[in-house]
Computed example of a mutant assay.
Amino acid sequence: MEREAPRKIIHVDMDAFYASVEQRDDPSLRGRPVAVGSPAARGVVAAASYEARTFGVRSAMPSVTALRKCPELVFAPPRFEVYRAVSRQIHAIFADYTTLIQPLSLDEAYLDVTENLRGLPTAWATAKEIRARIHDETGLTASAGISYNKFLAKLASDQRKPNGQFAVTPEMGAAWVEGLPVGRFHGVGPVTAERMRALGIETGADLRARSMAFLQEHFGSSAAWYHGIARGLDDRPVDPDRTRKSSGSETTFDRDLTEAAEIEAGVLRMADDVWEWCEKTRAFGRTVTVKVKFADFRQITRSRSHAGGVTAQEQLRQASLELIRSVYPPRKGIRLVGVTVSNFNAAPGETEGLPLFGGEPQAP
């Protein structure tokens, strides 16, 4: 029986996307350490340029910590409407090469180019041409990983960052995985990686040496995934119809809040951010969730589902207020609030789904 030819998968990942857009649009920022976010005492870094990363500045880092690591750090306020517009440009380039595009966020996506639309002979040549067009048309650089499955393609895209590409062939896949630390594996987060290290699993080779029974005992339903990726196996297709499960926005206050009016003003701003995305994409959810983080970093969520969907801005605002009011009076000050909409429906009379290369507002 003839064996099925391996897929040709490309994972394209923009280099320091938000920060690179800011450096592109403001020449005074080029070559300088830049963080997208707010320098306020309670601010958080949404993205960091490569110049900032050399000092240890990373996304999701508190701004005060980032400034301690890099006193010369320059903060640029986020412009999500600009990032979304650039993302659409990039998606238009992808669409010239394949119809099988699965976005992961504004700045990365999987492409299945097994049968590419331009007739290029290899996935390597396809990735190279896509990266060149992204640079020519947006002024930004991208890195790419090329392989026969999604897991390896995503790992490979980190190998030559920034502005490079790397391929993992079927002949080298399993052996290549064995030499990598498990903390680099997609689907193995920091907590799981620590659990694995406690069990003596430091590398892909260590993971491969463990039996399925051992993995099931310690990792339950995730055992099959870990067993497969330790061998370079991943059968997941590139899914262009994969829909967004949620869209949310959150903000960290400059100080801990206890006054209802101030807390609710923050919740309403986040609800309006989310509604802007819902309107643009014509995606309307049934479930509203409010997230609250207290001064002691304890975090809770409150959710409520609406049978007919949340299809009006005022409806989302009211639902968000009702949820935040359910935690009153707060036992401690509130440092962060967020609003998320999930369980998407199409709007009445609409057939358009989620954007193929969309993103969600995430206020830093």
Rank of each mutant, 00 (worst) to 15 (best):
I134C: 11
Y110M: 09
S38W: 02
Q102I: 11
P121Q: 08
F80H: 13
A48H: 01
R131L: 08
R133T: 13
R133L: 15
H135W: 11
L140A: 11
T54P: 00
Q89C: 14
R131N: 14
G145P: 05
I146D: 06
A109D: 09
P103N: 15
R53S: 02
A35H: 02
G37K: 01
P103I: 10
P103D: 13
G56R: 01
G31T: 09
I101T: 13
E115T: 15
K128P: 00
L29M: 12
R58M: 07
A47Y: 00
R88V: 15
N149H: 11
G31N: 12
R133G: 07
G139M: 12
G119K: 11
R131M: 15
R88G: 13
T126F: 05
V45L: 02
R53Y: 00
Y148F: 14
A95I: 03
S38L: 01
E137W: 11
L140Q: 09
A47L: 01
A60T: 14
S20L: 05
M61T: 04
S20P: 05
E51F: 00
E129F: 08
Q102H: 11
V44G: 01
A109Y: 03
Q23N: 10
M61I: 05
W124I: 13
F94C: 07
R30T: 08
E81V: 12
D96Y: 01
I146R: 06
S143Q: 10
V113R: 10
A48I: 01
R88S: 14
S143Y: 08
Q102R: 09
S147I: 10
D107P: 04
V36P: 00
V57I: 08
A132S: 15
S63Y: 03
A60E: 05
A46M: 06
R58W: 03
V64A: 14
G37S: 10
I134H: 11
P78F: 05
A132I: 08
R88W: 12
T65Q: 14
S49G: 05
L117E: 09
T122W: 10
V74Q: 11
S147F: 08
N116Y: 07
K69L: 15
Y110K: 05
S105C: 09
A52G: 04
